[in-house]
Design a binder for these strands. Structure first.
Length: 287
DNA sequence: AATTCGTGGAA
DNA sequence: TTTCCAAGAAT
């Protein structure tokens, strides 16, 4: 039974995969890596146009590495979590410097890059280098949990999640890579968090959660995150000002973003500490 | 292990 | 309108 789950997923994927730009022929490992970092906590729909612009400007890691970090931050625009842009730039420097401008092929070397964790390392190894690894993101965790009869997975990816996903993969490397992409796609399009479309799911026949009635938990599956008025909010407001500024701005130009001076100061200090903002002669700019 | 870190669209 | 959360990583 479980030995042909991967085929159900892969066959469905062959017919229903979205035409995402990084899935087109000719995409380089660098292109895959950029797509994965951009997609961390950001909807793929919003990533697509940003990815095309990024790869058009910086076709290889060395092209990005040659630029100041601020250029990466500005190009990142409103994808969110701009520290990802900083880490992607740092990863480009490491690849250009230590790996002959070639994206590493081992999990260990990939995980050693800034901003590349358990998920992204395996995604790059599988989707760029066509290796056989469990690729476990929030979609795969949810699909695997439901196959086993649970309505949702835990908060973070555990070694047990990796083992569970690995069990679903076929022996062949290429088949395994396709299967991982398929499981992610099913989670993103069919087996969604709020309103799963089990009637259209290729795995419904082998899904314990579907068999047992598709009961969803009542409350939010994560703790509700406040945003308005938080440091994160104010950091975003400050970064928006600096992204738009052509020249370094004085402190007063940042005072308008939020009414509480204390929170403004804390947000700005945090951005400077993170390397997202540079201070030059009492003025502020992207680094 | 629990927090922190942006942004925007859909329900 | 408010709430939820979307291809996670680092600390």
């Amino acid at each position: 039974m479980t030995d042909d789950i991967w085929r159900l997923a892969a066959d469905w994927f062959a017919e229903n995969a979205r035409d995402l730009p990084w899935r087109r022929p000719g995409t380089t490992p660098w292109g895959v890596l950029v797509s994965e970092v951009m997609s961390q906590q950001t909807p793929v729909k919003r990533v697509a146009p940003a990815w095309e612009a990024w790869l058009d400007r910086w076709p290889t890691p060395a092209d990005l590495a040659a630029e100041p970090t601020g250029e990466a931050i500005r190009m990142w625009n409103r994808l969110g979590y701009p520290r990802r842009a900083l880490r992607l730039h740092a990863a480009a420097v490491a690849i250009a410097t230590d790996h002959d401008n070639q994206v590493p092929t081992t999990i260990a070397a990939l995980e050693a890059l800034p901003g590349i964790g358990t998920y992204t390392a395996r995604a790059v190894a599988a989707f760029a280098h066509r290796q056989r690894h469990p690729v476990v993101d929030t979609n795969v965790r949810r699909v695997v949990a439901r196959l086993a009869g649970r309505p949702d997975a835990g908060m973070a990816t555990t070694p047990a999640d990796l083992r569970a996903a690995e069990q679903l993969l076929p022996p062949g490397e290429e088949d395994a890579a396709v299967t991982s992409a398929a499981l992610m796609e099913i989670g993103a399009l069919i087996c969604t968090a709020r309103a799963p479309s089990c009637a259209e799911c290729p795995l419904a026949a082998v899904c314990e959660w579907h068999a047992s009635g598709e009961e969803l938990p009542e409350g939010p599956s994560r703790k509700p995150q406040k945003y308005t008025g938080t440091d994160r909010h104010v950091r975003g407001l400050i970064m928006a000002v600096l992204r738009e500024a052509d020249l370094p701005v004085p402190r007063v130009s940042l005072d308008g973003v939020w009414h509480e001076a204390e929170r403004r100061e804390r947000a700005l200090a945090g951005l400077v500490a993170d390397g997202l903002v540079a201070v030059e002669d009492e003025r502020y700019r992207l680094p």
